[in-house]
C-alpha cells in the first residue's frame, strides 16, 4: 500500500515536472544556442510568454477548413502528452510503467504525426501539403531505424518496456559496447528528425518552402497553435528523457524508495541541461540538409541500428 502511494506520488510529480518544465527546456536550448553564436538571446522563460500570448489571442478558423479542424491539434497534443507520461524522467517504476512498451510509444508518435500531417492538409494550402509529404517520407526511415535500434535495447535488457530497459541499464551490468555506440548514433539521428531540429528541419526557419514541422501548423492560431507548440516542446523533453533514460541512467531514483528521490531530482535537470547544451552546440555547427539528403541520413541511421544488432548477435555467439 505504501509502495503504491509512493509510486502514485512519483507519477504525479513526474507529470507535473514534465508538463511544467517542457517550455523551459525549449527556452534553455534557444538561450544556449544564442550564447554559442555570441548573441544575448531571448530569456529562458520566453516559451512561457509565447504560450501565454497564444492563450490570449482569438482562435481563427479558415473558411476552407472542415469540421475536424480542431481535432488534429488536440489529437497531436494528447498523443504526445500521453507518450510523455510513459517515459520515465527522474525515477523508474512509475504507475505508467506496465504500459510503457516501446512499440506503444512508437505508435503514439505515429498517431501524433498523422494528426499533425492531417492538420497540414486540412485547409488545402500548398505548404501544408508539401510538408506533409516530406514528413511522410522522413517517417518511413525514422520508424524503421527506431524499430531496429529498439531491437538492440530489447536484447540487452531482456525487456521491451522503457521502464524495463531503464531498470536494466541503471543496474549497470550492461557495460559499454560498440553496439550501444552505434545505437546511440542511430537514436540521435531519429530524435533530431522527430523533434524537427537541424539538420533535418530548422525550428527557427522563416522560409516556408524549407520547413516541415512548422509548415504543418501555419494555418493554426490561438489555442490550437498553443497546443501544437506545446506538443513540440513536450516532444523535445520526451526524447531527451528517452535518451537520458537509456544512455545516462546513473542516479535515477526508484519510485518505491523515497530516499533515492533527491539524487534523481537533482541529476535529472542536470542531464537535461547538458543535453540541451550539446543540442545547441550541434545545431550551430551543422547546416540544414536538403530534403532529399534526409533519407540518406536516416538510412545511415537504420544501417547503424542493424549493425548494432549484428554486433550484439556476434558478441552473444562469442560469449556463449
Amino acid at each position: 500500500m505504501l509502495t503504491f502511494a509512493l509510486r502514485l506520488i512519483a507519477t504525479l510529480l513526474h507529470a507535473a515536472l514534465v508538463f511544467a518544465l517542457a517550455p523551459l527546456l525549449m527556452g534553455a536550448v534557444n538561450k544556449f544556442r544564442a550564447w554559442a553564436l555570441g548573441r544575448r538571446g531571448p530569456p529562458f522563460l520566453q516559451p512561457y510568454f509565447n504560450l501565454y500570448k497564444h492563450l490570449r489571442k482569438t482562435t481563427l478558423v479558415p473558411e476552407t477548413a472542415t469540421e475536424l479542424f480542431a481535432l488534429w491539434p488536440v489529437t497531436a497534443f494528447l498523443a504526445t502528452a500521453t507518450a510523455a507520461l510513459l517515459v520515465p524522467s527522474f525515477c523508474t517504476g512509475l504507475l505508467t510503467a506496465p504500459a510503457s512498451d516501446f512499440i506503444t510509444l512508437i505508435g503514439l508518435f505515429a498517431l501524433a504525426r498523422a494528426a499533425a500531417m492531417l492538420g497540414g492538409l486540412e485547409t488545402g494550402f500548398g505548404f501544408g501539403g508539401a510538408a506533409a509529404g516530406r514528413e511522410a517520407l522522413f517517417s518511413v526511415f525514422a520508424e524503421a531505424a527506431l524499430l531496429v535500434v529498439i531491437l538492440g535495447f530489447a536484447l540487452l535488457a531482456h525487456s521491451i518496456t522503457i521502464n524495463g530497459i531503464a531498470v536494466a541499464f541503471a543496474a549497470g551490468h550492461i557495460g559499454i559496447s560498440v553496439s550501444l555506440g552505434f545505437a546511440l548514433a542511430a537514436l540521435l539521428a531519429v530524435a533530431l528528425t522527430e523533434t524537427g531540429r537541424i539538420p533535418t528541419d530548422n525550428p527557427a526557419g522563416h522560409l516556408e518552402l524549407a520547413m516541415v514541422h512548422e509548415a504543418l501548423s501555419l494555418e493554426y492560431s490561438g489555442r490550437f497553435l498553443l497546443l501544437l507548440e506545446y506538443a513540440g516542446m513536450l516532444r523535445l523533453l520526451l526524447w531527451m528523457n528517452l535518451i537520458g533514460t537509456i544512455f545516462l541512467p546513473f542516479g535515477m531514483a526508484r519510485a518505491d524508495d523515497i530516499l533515492s528521490w533527491p539524487l534523481g531530482l537533482i541529476l535529472w535537470p542536470l542531464k537535461l541541461g547538458v543535453m540541451a547544451a550539446l543540442l545547441a552546440l550541434f545545431e550551430i555547427s551543422t547546416a540544414k540538409m536538403r530534403v532529399f539528403r534526409v533519407p540518406e541520413f536516416l538510412g545511415a541511421a537504420m544501417l547503424l541500428g542493424i549493425l548494432a544488432g549484428i554486433f550484439l548477435f556476434v558478441a552473444s555467439r562469442i560469449g556463449t
Partner: peptide, 19 residues
C-alpha cells in the same frame, strides 16, 4: 484553456500560403 484562454473562434479567409 477554458479558464484562462480567450473563448470562441472566428472564421476568416485562409492565409493559403499568401495567395
Amino acid at each position: 484553456l477554458h479558464r484562462f484562454g480567450v473563448r470562441g473562434t472566428r472564421e476568416v479567409a485562409p492565409w493559403n500560403g499568401g495567395f
